[in-house]
Design a protein around this nucleic acid. Structure first.
Length: 410
DNA sequence: CCTCCACCGGAACGTGAGGAGT
DNA sequence: ACTCCTCACGTTCCGGTGGAGG
């Protein structure tokens, strides 16, 4: 048995991979050269350079949609700044925090304090005590501390106390200076902020526009050179990835995913080269994965609503008019009885439908049909069969497997 | 031009879970 | 251990509405 397994893995290892270094295509990777982001890089560096003179740089807010290079540029500049400060013998520290993971004031402060070797328990201490510890730790010597808060909007949603305290920290420090860089992909998130925090944080603002197809193409060429062995990419692969990603509002992350998954698919098919066809398959796979993930994590009620829509799509003939809210609600009520769920009001279902629309799982539009009222016309935006499968995975909904028998006439 | 359908979607309120403060 | 607050999720109530048919 062991021998067979050894053999098995040996074979797979020996098979020549088309990848040279796949890590380069992951989101977490920060390249040494950032293509098409010179302007933003320079702007950020110009603001931060005062740290090297021992002054406090302005606080900065950085906006831009996903995959526009915000994080990459910020991390890159941070790294360079630290390198430079070492050379110049100026004490300057950059701490990167991803607020999606560290999303409460307590965890944030504990995390920062731990950077300075403070022992903070996961829970239990009063928040201001942790804050105090942190202040003492950084104030121990003269230095400039730059805190990068990535996905800062996530932190704000749980209250802006953390930001309020942090933005005022300088007033109670003797030696150290702190400046904050907030990175957000939500342009409007400052609306939820206390005006004082808002003005303090937003001393400088940098906006990252989406990449266009040409720019994405350049980025991909740069990464592909590091990620793939020479000559394994068909000439159409990168232009196609760029074009597809440019349609998704210039998301470079999406483009890198496409490029990586295309390679993985080709690899799995034992091809020695990646072709256009693989990119198309990758596109489908990414989309399916996304939908599966979204649908699987839906609340049960939403799943049931979605199930109703899938059922209606499957069981009404195409020529018939689109599905309406009323139809969905009628079926939904019946299904609720079968699977033993509370029946929500139609008002609530309207909201659930809007959410599904926002998630891109269904398309809906309000249409007036004159005498016959006004309603949402609903259609499924994703593959009905794979959605159906995923929905049946739910413990409650699994009872709906052989539905025809149970509601028959519908 | 008016009516009136069948729903949309805003506002205010109720409830229970989970945190923070004391 | 206790209260107080906030938040997500739902409900109730209701004013609003585009346009086919009269």
């Amino acid at each position: 048995m062991t021998q067979t397994l050894n053999h098995l893995f040996q074979e797979l290892l020996d098979a020549e991979s088309i990848f040279k270094n796949k890590e380069v295509l992951r989101h977490s990777y920060t390249p040494d050269v950032l293509v098409h982001r010179d302007e933003q890089t320079k702007e950020l560096a110009t603001i931060l350079v005062s740290a090297l003179r021992g002054e406090t740089p302005s606080n900065i807010l950085i906006y831009g949609k996903t995959g526009t290079g915000k994080t990459a540029v910020t991390r890159y500049v941070g790294k360079e700044l630290e390198n430079m400060s070492e050379k110049l013998n100026v004490k300057c520290t950059v701490i990167y925090v991803n607020c999606e993971i560290i999303d409460t004031q307590y965890r944030l402060l504990a995390n920062l304090a731990r950077h300075y070797g403070e022992e903070i328990p996961m829970t239990g201490w009063p928040t201001d005590q942790v804050f105090q510890k942190f202040k003492e730790a950084i104030d121990a010597e003269e230095q400039v501390l730059i805190i990068i808060l990535d996905e800062i909007d996530k932190l704000v949603k749980k209250g802006d106390d953390a930001l309020y305290n942090l933005s005022r920290i300088n007033t109670s420090l003797k030696n150290a200076r702190v400046s904050i860089i907030g990175v957000s992909n939500d342009l409007k998130f400052t609306e939820f902020l206390d005006p004082r925090v808002k003005s303090s944080l937003g001393e400088e603002e940098i906006i990252y526009p989406p990449y266009n197809a040409d720019q994405i193409r350049d980025i991909l060429y740069q990464r592909a050179e590091m990620a793939y062995n020479p000559g394994v990419l068909d000439s159409m692969v990168i232009p196609l990835c760029s074009a597809l990603a440019a349609q998704e509002h210039g998301d470079a992350r999406r483009a890198l995913d496409l490029l990586r998954v295309s390679g993985e698919i080709a690899d799995r098919q034992n091809e020695h080269k990646v072709y256009e066809e693989h990119v198309r398959q990758a596109q489908d796979k990414i989309e399916v994965d996304r939908v599966v993930e979204v649908v699987r994590t839906l609340p049960t009620q939403s799943k049931l609503v979605l199930f109703s829509i899938v059922y209606l799509t499957k069981n009404t003939d195409r020529s018939k008019k689109a599905i309406t809210t009323g139809e969905v609600y009628m079926l939904y009520k019946k299904l609720c009885k079968i699977v033993d769920l509370d029946i929500l009001t139609q008002r609530r279902i309207t909201d659930l439908l809007s959410e599904l629309d926002m998630l891109g799982i269904i398309n809906s539009a309000v249409v007036s049909k004159g005498r016959y009222g006004r309603t949402k016309e609903i259609s499924l935006a994703v593959s009905e069969n794979s959605t159906y499968e995923v929905l049946l995975e739910d413990y409650k909904l699994s009872q709906l497997k052989d539905l025809q028998l149970k509601i028959g006439y519908f």
